[in-house]
Amino acid sequence: MNTRRDFLQKLTLSAAVIPFLPGYSPSSLTDFSNHPYQGRVLRVAILGLGSYGTRVADAMQSCKRAKLVGAISGTPAKLKEWQSKYNIPEKNCYNYDNFDQIKNNKDIDVVYVITPNALHKEHVIRVAKAGKHAICEKPLSVNAKDGQAMVDACKAANVKLLVGYRMHFEPKTLEVIRMRKDGEFGKVLFFQGLSGFTIGDPTQWRLNKQLAGGGAMMDIGIYSINGARYMIGEEPVWVTAQETKTNPEKFKEGVDETIQFQLGFPSGAVASCLSTYTMNNLDKFFLNGEKGFAEMQPSTGYGPIKGRTHKGELTQPHMTHQTIQMDEMAAIIFDNKKPVVPVDGEEGVRDLKIIDAIFLAAKTGKKVSLTV
């Protein structure tokens, strides 16, 4: 159990054994249920063939509007394995040194970057310069400055930059957002986000400051940051934070173990959140308003998400997150569809601005003002 993704897979039911349900079509999601899709298909190459890259590749086998056609890796054996497993042509396989040549490959529309956080900036900018759209796994980068450089590079190249915010397409999450927008909770007062697990292998890249840009906050705490924003429906204007470190040998300088942080919003709503690499049994969101509440646990795991509100249990069917994400991103890229919650590069930069402020608040002990 060396990674967040391994943990979440065991914490919840494996998405692999829960069937994709194409018949469920909430109004905010693309409807493929009435007839087979016959339009343009988004042709995707995945850069970074680790555990999450494999999860995305597996989920894409059920996509209606996106297809895995390429692979990029520094490990030749993985490329061979993916060619066989996913029927990928050899001409669509690249390594980290030569993948700029995708600019000459008309069979690839977009590259999904799933590499360590500190490599996102270089890889996305190279993808943009090759004239391809980019999807980047979150966090977008290791700080807001680098994230903005990625946004600017994609704009200059006239390509889209999207971020792998799979929860922005998750049906139960979208139902809570709908209820909040429709005023069913009344004035929102409070949000709680608990994000964490006990991380394993101390030598993995997620505990390497140079590759990860931090620790738990970059990996798992970002879910509570992003969740606070889309659940409350506002952008925070201040943050306070407190860091706790019980194992400095495992969590070295610049690698956060546990951070509690608080966010304040223009309406007066507040959020209280926890990001940690040393506690299990978390993954919980709670939203409280004057007229009602929403509680989700698991709130961001691979599924099925479970939740209830003051009106009862959330019953929207489970949909494999990465499957619906990639189909919806095809609609965003080809049709300029506007998702309920943005997944563009600017959205990624907003989260990074908040992470930068959380780190500053934890270091100084002061309230930090925010403009995101």
Score class of each variant (00 low, 15 high):
Ala128Thr: 02
Ala130Val: 02
Gly131Ala: 05
Gly131Arg: 02
His133Trp: 12
His133Asp: 14
Ala134Pro: 10
Ala134Asp: 10
Glu137Arg: 00
Glu137Asp: 13
Lys138Thr: 03
Ser141Glu: 11
Ser141Tyr: 12
Val142Met: 12
Val142Leu: 11
Asn143Phe: 10
Ala144Val: 04
Ala144Pro: 04
Ala144Cys: 06
Asp146Arg: 10
Gly147Val: 02
Ala149Gly: 06
Val151His: 00
Val151Arg: 03
Val151Cys: 01
Val151Glu: 00
Asp152Trp: 01
Cys154Gln: 02
Lys155Met: 00
Ala156Met: 08
Ala156Phe: 05
Asn158His: 14
Val159His: 00
Val159Gly: 03
Val159Leu: 03
Leu162Asn: 00
Gly164Pro: 02
Arg166Pro: 05
Met167Ala: 12
His168Trp: 08
His168Pro: 08
His168Val: 14
Phe169Ala: 06
Leu174Val: 05
Leu174Ile: 04
Glu175Phe: 11
Glu175Tyr: 13
Val176Asn: 08
Ile177Glu: 07
Ile177Thr: 06
Phe185Asn: 03
Gly186Ala: 06
Lys187Glu: 15
Val188Ala: 04
Val188Gln: 06
Leu189Gln: 15
Leu189Ile: 13
Phe191Gly: 10
Gly193Thr: 00
Gly193Asn: 06
Thr198Leu: 07
Gly200Trp: 08
Gly200Asp: 13
Asp201Asn: 15
Asp201Lys: 11
Pro202Phe: 01
Pro202Ala: 00
Pro202Ser: 00
Thr203Lys: 13
Thr203Met: 10
Thr203Arg: 09
Gln204Met: 14
Trp205Ile: 11
Trp205Asn: 09
Arg206Thr: 15
Arg206Asp: 12
Asn208Met: 03
Lys209Val: 11
Lys209Tyr: 13
Lys209Glu: 10
Gln210Trp: 02
Gln210Ser: 14
Leu211Arg: 13
Leu211Cys: 06
Leu211Ile: 07
Ala212Met: 14
Gly213Val: 10
Gly214His: 10
Gly214Tyr: 05
Gly215Lys: 02
Asp219Ser: 15
Asp219Trp: 10
Ile220Val: 15
Gly221Pro: 07
Gly221Cys: 06
Ile222Phe: 04
Ile222Gln: 12
Tyr223His: 15
Tyr223Ser: 09
Ser224Phe: 03
Ser224Trp: 04
Ile225Tyr: 09
Asn226Glu: 15
Gly227Cys: 07
Gly227Arg: 07
Arg229Cys: 13
Arg229Trp: 08
Met231Pro: 04
Met231Lys: 05
Gly233Thr: 11
Pro236Arg: 11
Trp238Phe: 13
Thr240Val: 10
Glu243Phe: 05
Thr244Ala: 12
Thr246Asn: 14
Thr246Lys: 12
Asn247His: 14
Asn247Gln: 14
Asn247Gly: 09
Pro248Asp: 01
Pro248Trp: 03
Lys250His: 01
Glu253Lys: 14
Glu253Asp: 14
Gly254Gln: 03
Gly254Asn: 01
Val255Phe: 03
Glu257Ala: 00
Glu257Phe: 02
Ile259His: 02
Ile259Ala: 02
Gln260Val: 13
Phe261Thr: 09
Phe261Asp: 08
Gln262Pro: 00
Gln262Thr: 14
Gln262Ala: 11
Leu263Pro: 01
Leu263Glu: 00
Gly264Tyr: 05
Phe265Thr: 08
Pro266Gln: 05
Pro266Ser: 03
Pro266Ala: 00
Ser267Leu: 01
Gly268Asn: 04
Gly268His: 05
